[in-house]
Design a protein around this nucleic acid. Structure first.
Lengths: 223, 223
DNA sequence: TTATTTTTGTTGTATAAACAACAGAAATGT
DNA sequence: ACATTTCTGTTGTTTATACAACAAAAATAA
């Protein structure tokens, strides 16, 4: 069931609505005309050029943020999952259209809020809006830091260095040397901005040299 | 003179304080313990690992946001100038230390505000704080979008494509095919993540082929 | 189960970029 | 004005990666 009520607890505990009372949250969901949308695998949620006036919160599933480069090269900016927001920066920047695509990589449920509608109505006056904007500020901060980390990943010189930087960062995020990655090989290559086959080869080499071990999407860093 | 009063108009019109009344701004500057700091060329304003509890606003000069990669490679994340903010995302993310350096590339004046001090005092209650956080949200949005653009720049396959993508984006920002870039050649190479000499060679080639023309830091895109 | 499609790994070859070393130009200091 | 330092452009060589083509494995469908 994709009813709002079924996800109420998850929504209440998501970063966007963190710190709100039940009353505030309920009022806000109503005021923002909250509804749940379902996207199938490979469906486009946002496309390059769209004007974004909604806040999107992923309730279930996974989403790739991608960009098609001038000559058809696919760049994966990031992979988002449960409790992440989509395209928040394009909500914050008035009159800027999305420069990226958001694509469901599996069946995905998204909570959609009409941000503009509400803010124009309440003129930023209500207390719940104050809490919300505070949360949005913090969420964007985190996104920012993760984009910087992505830049670090892809800015390494060799495929080997990109892989090791990426895997180290993932290990850090998971507080463990054993972790699962979300990307398949092609997506990881598009994220690290390298050729898939060359990357596969380098992964094997790293394993043979005893630096890492992996099986499918489970990786382990061996110091 | 580096007195606050001398920069009052510039501060008032900066994105951070946009939309505030004189009274609000004056109160806020006091409450946030605003002061101006001067940094010499090549001086570090922020270093990797610092905890950031201040809002920094560049009044004059230029700043590189950099990161030293694992084996001493320099990565330039972005170049900031007048009216830009430093390290805002690390203010928004509690308990996260800076993952980047901020380095003055020329003599630079920075307005410094003790963000934490004030927010803990006023408990987000004052109206000026509400306006501020709204502005910060928008500023971070823009930063986010620019980071995505940087990712696009460095994610091109060849040096030539990186250069053309970068130059096109600069032309777009300047609303003109003739524009000046802020980077010198070494900095541009570190920004695009390529070897300087190879990049210089490619620039010459582009000029010989009639795609661009340049003289020092002035570029022109010839369609 | 078997057949089909998708994903992942392997290899050889062509190509682009890093690197090193240097020369000339421009900027800076004295 | 001169000396010195910094910046930019040029070239040859080495090295890493993209690309293509294919094989093996895994996942999915029939």
């Amino acid at each position: 069931m994709t009813k709002l009520e079924n996800f109420y607890n998850q929504i209440k505990n998501s970063p966007v609505f963190f710190g709100m009372s039940d009353d505030e949250l309920k009022g806000l969901l109503e005021c923002f005309n909250a509804r749940i949308r379902k996207y199938e695998k490979d469906e486009m949620i946002i496309r390059q050029g769209d004007m974004i006036s909604n806040i999107y919160l992923i309730l279930e599933g996974g989403v790739n943020i991608e960009k098609d480069s001038y000559w058809g090269r696919r760049i994966i900016i990031s992979r988002l999952g449960k409790n992440d927001n989509l395209a928040l920066s394009f909500v914050g920047s008035k009159d800027v259209e999305s420069s990226v695509d958001a694509i469901a990589v599996e069946d995905t449920l998204v909570l959609v809020l009409s941000y503009e509608k509400c803010t124009s109505m309440c003129q930023n006056a209500c207390t719940r809006h104050k809490v919300l904007i505070n949360n949005l500020f913090q969420i964007l901060s985190k996104e920012n830091i993760e984009l910087i980390q992505k830049i670090e990943n892809v800015s390494q010189k060799t495929i080997r260095d990109k892989l090791m930087t990426y895997l180290s960062n993932e290990a850090m995020k998971n507080h463990s040397n054993r972790f699962e990655i979300q990307f398949n090989r092609q997506d990881l290559a598009d994220y690290l901005n390298v050729d898939r086959s060359a990357m596969s080869f380098e992964l094997s080499k790293l394993q043979k040299e005893g630096l890492i071990s992996y099986n499918k999407n489970r990786f382990e860093l061996l110091s």
